[in-house]
Simulated scan of single mutants.
Amino acid sequence: MNRLRLDTDRCQAHGLCEQAAPDLVHLDDEDNLIIDVPGELSGAQLDAARDAVRACPVSALSLE
């Protein structure tokens, strides 16, 4: 299974993941990261998710 997982304790709301994968994640008005596709990812979504994981400077996102 390929899905994004967020470690909320690590997330510092830099927003780099949102820039890398705006169709998958976004920061809400309180700077909480929201995963917009909570289920299994496929195709282009998986590529974008990998980009978002790599973009996070604090390793708060991962693929499981």
Score class of each variant (00 low, 15 high):
Asp29Ser: 09
Leu24Met: 14
Leu24Asp: 15
Leu33Glu: 08
Asp51Trp: 06
Asp9Trp: 10
Val25Met: 07
Leu33Cys: 09
Leu27Cys: 08
Ala48Phe: 01
Pro22Cys: 05
Pro22Ala: 03
Glu30Asn: 07
Leu16Met: 11
Val58Thr: 08
Ala13Thr: 02
Leu6Ala: 15
Leu63Asn: 11
Ala60Asp: 11
Asp31Pro: 02
Asp47Cys: 04
Cys17Arg: 06
Leu27Arg: 07
Asp28Met: 03
Asp29Cys: 04
Asn2Tyr: 14
Leu41Val: 05
Gln12Phe: 01
Asp7Arg: 15
Asp31Leu: 05
Gln12Cys: 03
Ser42Asn: 01
Asp7Glu: 15
Arg10Asp: 12
Val58Met: 07
Asn32Ala: 10
Arg50Gly: 15
Asp47Phe: 03
Glu40Asp: 01
Pro38Gly: 13
Glu30Tyr: 10
Asp28Arg: 01
Glu64His: 13
Gln12Met: 02
Ser59Pro: 09
Leu63Met: 15
Arg54Tyr: 02
Pro22Asp: 02
Arg3Gln: 13
Gly39Phe: 09
Cys56Arg: 06
Gly39Trp: 09
Arg10Phe: 09
Asp51Thr: 05
Val58Ala: 07
Val25Pro: 08
Asp29Thr: 08
Pro22Ile: 02
Gln45Ile: 08
Gln19Ala: 08
Val53Arg: 09
Asp36Tyr: 02
Ala60Gly: 13
Leu6Ile: 10
